[in-house]
């Protein structure tokens, strides 16, 4: 029988020679299996003198431990190589994709609309809605535009063939929602009303016969013009960001008094005329069943479309309506 040390050397040699896990398995059988010299030598120990047996046994155990270690190490090497080979064979170019991404996009008007809603919801407002085909009463009458009033001419109104002539129209502003909310809700009222509006207009870069506005209405016990100015300022900071401020300039709308235009000043000092606002006119309160001696309020409104153009750097309103996927897909 070979010396145990020689068996270790032999195991080392054969393990190194094995190039696959199967070959290594055969080596393991040859070196440590039932008929391996190591096991045979062990069986022979019983015939030896006690002292010699002890010495030879220790030698065999040490050799066995060394051989196991050699085989395990080689097995780890070979399985790592096998795994690496499998992975290498599965290599994939991750840009090798034929399916085109189909990402859907929300319209820029929707995105702007939702952003505006979110700013006001954050300020404690609810969101109200009203019909696009509206009655003359809600669009004008309830808002302190008497019949035949020249101020009605400021709105190039489109009428529809429904009911008595002149009674039904495409709302020219979102302000009728104010009247509807006041009729249906006890104050205090804190609402905004985004919506689609219409006017008799020829489409060009800055005009469309259809456009979108957002209206705000607050009715509470002691609401003041200072509250209105503060609210516009808070909105300006929230929506446009730091460095933007606002101002109110006296103006005229039949449904508010005092009335004002509000402008936004950009950080570079230039102005953006944004919308109209004012304190709810007592006649409007009365038309909607609210006692103007008990309640005070303000309203404001401005266009959504122009804000969308500014936000996304679009220079022509008509682009919003083409539905060209090359336009829609950019935002």
């Amino acid at each position: 029988m070979a010396e145990p040390e020689q068996l270790v050397v032999e195991a080392e040699r054969q393990a190194a020679a094995a190039t696959t896990l199967d070959e290594l398995s055969a080596v393991r059988t040859a070196m440590t299996g039932k008929r391996s010299p190591l096991v045979v030598a062990r069986k022979a120990l019983g015939d030896m003198e006690p002292d010699a047996r002890k010495q030879a046994g220790q030698a065999l155990n040490a050799a066995k431990a060394s051989i196991d270690e050699i085989l395990s190490a080689r097995e780890a090497e070979l399985s790592a190589a096998a795994r690496a080979e499998k992975l290498a064979a599965e290599r994939l170019d991750l840009t090798e994709v034929t399916e085109q991404p189909t990402s859907g996009h929300l319209h820029v008007i929707t995105q702007t609309w939702q952003e505006l809603e979110d700013v006001f919801v954050g300020m404690g407002y609810r969101v109200a809605e009203g019909p696009e085909i509206e009655s003359e009463w809600y669009n004008f009458g309830a808002l302190n535009f008497p019949l035949g009033h020249p101020a009605r001419d400021m709105y190039d109104t489109l009428y529809v063939d429904y009911g008595e002539p002149g009674t039904t129209l495409l709302r020219t502003h979102t302000s009728p929602v104010q009247a509807r909310v006041m009729e249906n809700q006890e104050p205090p009222i804190y609402v905004v009303a985004p919506g689609r509006c219409f006017r008799q207009d020829t489409a060009d870069a800055t005009h469309m016969p259809v456009f979108h506005q957002i209206e705000g209405l607050v009715v509470d016990r002691d609401t003041t013009l200072g509250d209105l100015a503060g609210t516009i300022e808070a909105f300006t900071a929230a929506y446009f960001g730091p460095g933007f401020t606002s101002r109110l300039r006296p103006s005229y709308f039949p449904f508010t008094e005092p009335s004002a235009e509000f402008d936004i000043q950009r950080p570079d000092g230039t102005w953006l005329e944004l919308g109209g606002c004012g304190m709810v006119h007592p006649n409007v309160f009365e038309a909607c069943g609210i006692d103007p001696e008990q309640w005070q309020g303000f309203a404001f409104g401005f266009g959504i479309d122009r804000l969308a153009l500014i936000r996304f750097g679009i220079d022509d309103l008509r682009e919003l309506w083409t539905n060209d996927i090359r336009f829609l897909g950019q935002f």
């Binding site: 006001f120 919801v121 404690g124 609810r126 607050v218 509470d220 509250d227 503060g230 609210t231 300022e233």
Partner: peptide
Amino acid sequence: RTVPVTEQAG
């Protein structure tokens, strides 16, 4: 300028 405070949750 003041900002009115409402108890209503937006």
